[in-house]
Amino acid sequence: MGRREYVSDGLRLDGRRPKELRNMRAQIGVLQSADGSAMFQMGNTQVLASVFGPREVEQRSQLQHDRAIVKCEYAMAAFSTGERRRRGKTDRRSTELSLVIRNTLEQTIQLEEYARSQIDVYVQVLQADGGTRCACINAAMLALADAGIKLRDVIASCAAGYLQGTPLLDLNHEEDRAGGPDISVAYQPGLGKIVALQMDGRLPTEAFDECVQLAIEGCKAMAGVMRKELLRHTRALMAAGEDAGGGGGGGGGAALR
């Protein structure tokens, strides 16, 4: 078996250029029973996220007087991977990813606005083709926004890798499996902050900077797409609610927090 060419003539296995993102698709408000939900797709990777809360804390011992607690669970559907696999929700990878996602979201939710309450975030991977953790963070963020949970900024998450001396943006599963390094980044574009960064594999120092930069550029582009979808969805819901006869103030006369 010869060595696999991941980049040849400036094109990758799926025909993309090195710095090209896969096609993205976001749908907001896809699950009836949740307070907020979203479906996020990146190429073939497809993730569903739902949010319940803020609500009463389930275990009183965990209650925090000055902030909300966040619970997160990551699960993969048995049909989500190329080779079908039944995976429990409590296996190591699921637990690790649940922690990473929770940690990322905790930095973005205005936890202090929801003291003494609990926010549950569940992500369900429907199709895994590389970049699943990034897709999960994106879907979760959209679901939180759908639930009306206050966020310091939007978050976009994206991964970059390095194969055959070329930085590659948004690796799919095949590229991921090639054994090269893989850096996933979660970024707040408005605040200009990196809220999550994880690297697997070894990377020469110069290339590290280049890859992180590339991932950030990818995040910015994705944030733009997600923001558009959030606006579109918001507009659609609110246009219906506006009363032509002058509109209700509703919760408008707000107290300063």
């Binding site: 926004a145 966020l151 707040q188 574009p189 923001r227 606006l231």
Partner: peptide, 10 residues
């Protein structure tokens, strides 16, 4: 009555 809409972070 066209309102101004914003997204998170705007």
């Amino acid at each position: 009555h066209a309102s101004a809409y914003v997204a998170v972070g705007d």
